[in-house]
Amino acid sequence: MDKKKVFIAGITKENPVLMMFLGMCPALAITTSIDNGIGMGLAVIIVLLLTNSIISLIRNTVPNEIRIPVYIIIIAAVVSIIEMLMQAYTPQLSTSLGIFIPLIVVNCIILGRAEAFASKNNILNSMIDALGMGLGFTLGIFLMSFVRQLLGTGVLNLHNMFDSSVVFFQFNIIPKDFVIDIFTQPTGAFLTLGFLVAIVNAITSAVKKHQANKKVEAK
């Protein structure tokens, strides 16, 4: 199996948020700030890495009849551990992500990768797949939170998630009188997702057309 292909697929043509529409619940709900987007993305990457590697390790011993309950127990345990660690070391982030941290358990990306990939592939490939998918998810929700925070609040900033008093950067781009408040609301989340997916689709179809033209010319 081509490792590079596995890695790239998660970010580009199998991107969970923008191409496969998986993990929509956090993607729509928590993408109000870049802090939230990156925090959630990192949490999902860590959970995916751990669950994919554990499930890949036990894939030959787990009885087929009970594989889904076993996966769910493992996923729930890993997410609970991450939740406790976040409450302890990133309290601000854990408050602002709230219910969406425990909800990673039912995020279809995690169970989907366990069932579709980790249960059939060795640990190294499973970890590469987890990294690619996790980064793809992070990229998707980062783009959403970037657009929503910029248009909704006019400010772009990033805090250190371990110490919220440390600000990595802060740009006031749009004056407060000209921000579009609706982008901080759920409506804005749907609008942002729609436009982003439209842009991504336009790009992919242009690329496909270009490749098709090339083939014709080559003939």
């Binding site: 787990v62 009970i66 309950p69 345990a77 406790m84 660690l85 409450q87 309290p91």
Partner: peptide, 24 residues
């Protein structure tokens, strides 16, 4: 099999809880 998986995950959860609870 399920019981073993459950016991192992519970042990992991308990361990993490042990040292995160005071910090929380």
């Amino acid at each position: 099999y399920l019981a073993i998986v459950g016991a192992l995950t519970t042990a992991a959860l308990a361990t993490v809880h042990q040292f995160t609870a005071p910090i929380i």
